[in-house]
Design a protein around this nucleic acid. Structure first.
Lengths: 205, 205
DNA sequence: TCATTACGAAACGGCACAGGTTCGTATCGC
DNA sequence: GCGATACGAACCTGTGCCGTTTCGTAATGA
């Protein structure tokens, strides 16, 4: 079960040390395959080894099985807070929503996460790991919205939880599913935020 | 390639006729498996036969392979227009968005479609079939929005295509991915529509 | 009744690929 | 050098599906 304490006490090194290159190659290959659309079910140690240019034994020497490897690979993506916030709620939201797409960090993340969800829903264990990745990102948006409500930039009776989903949902759907052929996912953060700020009702201001 | 003209000329019936029950069982088993999360890649004739309580030969007698069967199974879901429209844009939108979820028709549809998309994106052939199912539904929403713009219920400069995605995206994400644990997907249509009508900016009316 | 076709079940050979292990070689500290 | 460990490649064994065929039985029309 235990993944890989990496550097534990590290006093002894009796034989040939493990290659860090190999570690990275395995993790990276795993994420690559997921990002390319390989479902968790289909994902195999063999395909990972092949993609990483590594023997299967090398993987089994580090992880007991696919689940453990997957867990560690996902943990890699747990970036804390990717973007800094500015001063206006609108700009902050746009910045945060932009990261739903081609994030500043790992560009594979947005491809991977949604495809993972069906699988995660079945395992309490995996769902935890998944939540650990998702929740911090949601919190960023939540905080910005609350700030807006507090300082009057947003309406006082705003349903924050609902609004979060209305902000993120469309962009997620577009990025991952290419839901609508005519929309440019890169422009959507600004468009969605502006649409929600103004509302779709007839102009009042 | 040709799936099953069902009733073609139908003058001859030399032997025992094919059971309609069996047709339904096969199609239904296919959709069930998909709805349960079986990806298209993993889906096998063998599993379908087993689920349907049918011999594999019976399936191969009707369809040349998995693709053809899948195509026909999806065609089953092509319901034309499930709901009737009322008089207010708000109510019509809520009605249409409600069908994104537990549709009046086949409850498996919302589970199936999104999981299919990755696979569909790879095959021009399948993508067509997929579009045939999706597009009519999108059109319903599009028409309601245009009507609203025309009669002044919605702002004149509304980006209809964007708005469609902002309406559908959150509900889709919630229903399929259970994106947000605290939201009730059944109530979301009304909530989303109202939020978008009012906007999240400070109250102006 | 009899020919004809459909049915479920089972079995077929073939194939692909999975999970794991073995083996000769490469790389480390000493 | 030496023991110890990591490495990639090749290998072994099992599983599962495919597509097809065979079987005994059931349902139809003539």
């Amino acid at each position: 079960m235990d993944p890989m304490p990496a550097v534990e006490e590290a006093p002894r090194a009796p034989g040939r040390p493990r290659s860090l290159r190999v570690d990275e190659a395995i993790i990276s290959a795993t994420l690559d395959l997921l990002a390319e659309g390989t479902s968790v079910e289909v994902l195999s140690i063999e395909s990972i080894a092949s993609r990483a240019g590594v023997g299967k034994a090398t993987i089994y020497r580090r992880w007991p099985g696919k689940d453990a490897l997957l867990h560690d690979a996902l943990a890699t993506l747990k970036s804390p807070g990717p973007e800094l916030a500015g001063e206006s709620v609108r700009d902050d939201l746009i910045a945060l929503l932009g990261q739903v797409g081609p994030s500043t960090q790992d560009p594979r993340l947005p491809q991977i996460l949604p495809c993972l969800l069906p699988h995660m829903s079945r395992s309490k264990e995996h769902y935890r790991a998944y939540q650990d990745i998702i929740e911090p990102r949601r919190n960023r948006v939540r905080e910005v919205l609350r700030r807006g409500v507090a300082n009057g930039e947003l309406r006082a009776d705003l349903d924050v939880e609902l609004t979060m989903t209305v902000l993120i949902g469309p962009i997620l759907v577009q990025r991952v599913l290419r839901w609508h052929p005519d929309l440019d996912a890169d422009k959507m953060p600004a468009q969605v935020v502006d649409l929600l700020m103004a509302g779709m009702g007839p102009a009042q201001s």
